[in-house]
Amino acid sequence: MKSNFRANLVKLLTFIGGMYFVVEFLVPLESYIDNFQDVHSKISDGYVLIGTMAFAIGIINLLLVYGSKLVFKRKGWFDSLVLLFGLALMLSVSVLDWRESLHSSKNLYELNMLSNFVETIISDSKSKKKGVPEVKERVRALERAYLKNVDVYERKISLVRNVILERKEDVSKVSSSLKDYRILNDKIKNAFLVNADLPIIQELISEQRQIAQHLFNLVYETSFIKKLYRLLYDGLFVSLGAAMFSLLGIYIAIAAYRAFRIQSFEAALMLGAALLVMLGQISFGLWISEDLPAIRNWLLQNPNSSAFRAIKIGASIAGLVMAFRMWLSIESDFTSGEDF
């Protein structure tokens, strides 16, 4: 009884999991539900959230497998130590890097808010939104808030130059941005003074925000943690990944020498096509014939495309049938085992 309930529950959830996308595809829900795009977006995020919650599974498994090797000093314990060191290093550097980037965007909070505020004033006045203060009053509030923040930002921005100098980085980029930033300060103050149109003020604040962002970003990019992150990613990780996969290049050479034997008509056909494609895609092929790239193209567009399409159509139909069987829990009974 118990196992039957569990198995049925799994089947039910499998069905519910797929139902939304099937219904959403078949029924024009946007005709029945107001603002369906937004609802759809939120539901999609819910699905992604379920999958994302599994983010730590890989780490837990690695800790269990390699951690136990290390703790009990089993064979390969040193390799496990290296792996766990790499994992801990990358995790901590990523967390610190994120913290640094959050700090950088936090610095921009007030300018973001002001930029957002002026945009909201414009859109509210266009849509004649009720329950909000008069436009004039809001612009005055905007001006007060801007002037209040001028000094705060002046301090923050001046610090950027010092930090960049301390880090012995190229300070020329900072100097020109600082100059632009200060020019915009005066322009915005002046715009408030002469009661300039709101879109002009919006444009100026947005431009200033962008310059400030560029400056804070420079601090972030030149930080120790960001450099360490890039060293790990660009220096070690990319090289290691590329080298691992490039071994395949050497293995295909040995396979070509040992396994590509013309022992049948089919093998000869395959070799002929392979040679034409290989010679058609390299520069040296042009030394043999100028037409080789065109021949390669014809081969890929005709026999290859049609044969591959036949395989693709067949495989996709099979995939669709499999998907249905999975959705309806009739594919294979994964609700079996000692728990069910």
Partner: peptide, 20 residues
């Protein structure tokens, strides 16, 4: 890089012929 890629193709063709 692309020229080196071409050379590597020639090497593969040579190895196939040699193997046969």
């Amino acid at each position: 890089t692309n020229t080196a890629l071409g050379v590597s193709h020639l090497a593969i063709i040579f190895l196939i012929i040699l193997g046969n």
